[in-house]
Amino acid sequence: MGPSGPGLKNEMLLPAVLDPWAAHALYEAASLAKTAAGSKVWLVSLGPKAKLQQVMMTMAQKAPFELVALDGPASGFADAHGTAAVLAEAIEGIAGLDRARLLVFGGWESATRCAGATMQLVGERLGLVDQFQGVDRLTIQPDGSMRLVERIDGGRHQVSVCAGPPAVIGWATGYLHEPPNNPQVGMANMRTIMPALQKAKATPIEPSGLTFARVELPTQVRETRVVKDQSPDEIAREIVAWVQGA
């Protein structure tokens, strides 16, 4: 716990990767842009500049995009409200963005905080009232409307039809495979990524009234054992006993 709140001592040593659902959102955006003439993908990314640079070494080869880099915290303890504020401001600052045709793609939750709130807050700040979360598939229909398949409770999907952009779409896994690395795309992207990283401005998250009273590792730790030929019933019994603290 530091003066600015909790954090990981080894945060900078964690793997530099785009959050899984955010990565899927990028792949879906690139795939959609390929089929809609005149479309362009911007990747707005918030994180420590050094980490963003490492992330871009991989992501730049996956899909064509223009990076908008924000040099700020990417910790799991960063508040969704402050994060959404700086992301929305960055989107508003993109020159040439047609707000009437805007589709804001992102991961519906992050692996670090799992808030599942940032996309909605960004959307509200941008005045977007058509929002979909946990989206697994987006299909553009012949009349230009969007058919969206969202994850809902009970392992089910909800299918919706939206007249068209603008909209916010928080992606789950989607149906696309991770694109293979394409060095040509990477080289083309790097022409804009390096300047974007160089001019990435320091973007602190505004302090809020959020206070962490306690942050700790779980007290209940399960030791892994390798046991052969145990029946499912026995495994289930052991797990239930452990959950109950027996």
């Binding site: 990981l8 799991g76 303890f77 959020l210 009273a213 942050v215 779980p218």
Partner: peptide, 16 residues
């Protein structure tokens, strides 16, 4: 609530 994929548990409060 949990953080970092259920690896850390925190108690928090807010003034807002």
């Amino acid at each position: 609530r949990w953080f970092y994929r259920q690896r850390m548990e925190a108690t928090l409060n807010r003034t807002e």
